[in-house]
Nucleic acid binder design. Structure first.
Lengths: 149, 149
DNA sequence: GTTCGTGCAAATCGTTTGCAGGAAT
DNA sequence: ATTCCTGCAAACGATTTGCACGAAC
């Protein structure tokens, strides 16, 4: 039961930050876990919870997603359309992704291009980097084979 | 007068797409050109136009920014706060940037990390890339020396 | 003269907030 | 018992839209 260990460790991260472990939080996490390879928008999370015959208010979803991000167990990505999407983080790895523009599927890339960057160029400009983003957008195998792309 | 050549070529790009060359469009472009090293939000563009003792409606600004992006002369970037920012593109170069989180200053990076990516990894997943994003966030020299970061 | 652009006001969309009652610790 | 969590409804900010008039081609 590897998966349960991973889930418990998510629960611990929440409690370590002083947040309570409520049923709603577990439900939202369930949805994120069941879609661990996908970026989900708050509205998609809402719908998937409905399909479980549960109902959680939008504001509760938003508030808890922020809490999860703050607890380091969820990643927030701002896509080009201006909407935010969320994805569970099982290990606290630093990753970059291939993101399917059709279905939101996310696949991890090995390595990080930032490590190959010429730091001298950045230092010369007097710039102090504190974060970076590298994302490849395109279409995943499944969406391509559906011939809808 | 290199700058004017560059400006005329922007005008041409607009007209080539079948859009009319209006005074408002020129004014918005002026502001983008005067801030070519910065990311500007629509509200900042609005204010800078006001300071020129001109007034352009917000909806006109939004509509024209979309048109400029569609004409390939303006770049749109979605920052983490969910707001959109815009920047003029003088040459249709493919660039990646260092972005100052305080003042919005943008400095170009040499090279592109995508070229160093192991394409075999992507092919193996059956993923078809169509675009990518590499951005370094941090603080620029000026903002650092203001000791406000 | 036709097509396209604009200002205005209202609508929309995603997201956030204040508050009063309810649940976790 | 205290602190935190939630639903609700309302507020919010950024962006978009319908429409009637005006400007570019």
């Amino acid at each position: 039961m590897f998966i349960m260990n991973k889930v418990y460790s998510l629960y611990e991260s929440i409690q370590e930050k002083g947040y309570k472990l409520t049923e709603h939080r577990k439900t939202i996490l369930d949805v994120l876990i069941e879609n661990e390879d996908y970026l989900l928008e708050p509205s998609e999370i809402f719908e998937k919870i409905l399909r479980k015959n549960k109902n959680i208010n939008f504001s509760t979803i938003y508030r808890n997603l922020e809490i999860f991000v703050h607890s380091g167990i969820v990643r927030k990505i701002n896509l080009d359309d201006g909407k935010s999407s969320y994805q569970i983080i099982f290990e606290d790895q630093h990753i970059h992704s291939m993101i399917c523009k059709k279905c939101g599927r996310v696949e991890a890339l090995k390595g990080c291009p930032f490590e190959k960057i010429d730091m001298k160029e950045i230092e010369k400009k007097g710039f102090r980097p504190d974060s970076h983003k590298f994302e490849i957008y395109g279409f995943c195998k499944e969406c391509l084979s559906n011939k809808k792309c």
